[in-house]
Design a protein around this nucleic acid. Structure first.
Lengths: 88, 88
DNA sequence: TTGATAGGCAAGTAGCGGCTTGCGTATGAT
DNA sequence: ATCATACGCAAGCCGCTACTTGCCTATCAA
């Protein structure tokens, strides 16, 4: 659960989650260009790739390969643990 | 909002929130002894104090002085922003 | 007033995290 | 077969963060 919060503690990663909420199944390159164009995040492809790995190990996104593309899908499941722990 | 997630990214701070959920209005020393006894967190009083400051600036706890005691109360308000952003 | 309790301030240190750089691999188009 | 595209791996750098240490202030009891 600590991994979950650390994953959410970076604004680039939360922005990625926002973009995946709007449109699921995006590739690494699509996310890179979107983050740069719409959010002014000029990080390298490798940097974004590392962010995606953090999100994946935290269970916040799921990844599948399709040819030479890497598609990313959001998974809001872990977020519900927050509600169960302190809210309600 | 980034401050909120960074505050939640530390296990000592989430444990503090757990303890305040169980019993509100605890002092700094009470939290120190509880964290040590029930969670094996052997950090210094100053360390815990710094954690409480982080939680306060994130809006997750509220602090009031009473004599020479510093009482802490949990505030789950900011947590609801998480639900509004990605859940529902 | 003296001493003990509860907490504050500030500087220093060690380790982690985000990012870049350089190179390598795999898939697909021509 | 060749070249471009999409992505992976690994090392290094730099700033931030959690933590300690040392000293100081404030409240209360004896």
């Amino acid at each position: 659960m600590e991994e979950l919060f650390k994953a959410l503690a970076d604004p680039t990663r939360t922005t990625i989650l926002d973009e995946l909420t709007e449109r699921n199944g995006q590739t690494l390159f699509e996310l890179c260009t979107l983050l740069s164009a719409r959010h002014g995040i000029g990080s390298t492809r490798q940097a974004i790739s590392q962010h995606l790995q953090v999100l994946e190990t935290a269970g916040l996104i799921e990844v599948r390969r399709e040819g030479r593309y890497k598609l990313h899908t959001i998974n809001t499941g872990p977020l519900k643990l927050i509600v169960e722990r302190w809210l309600q």
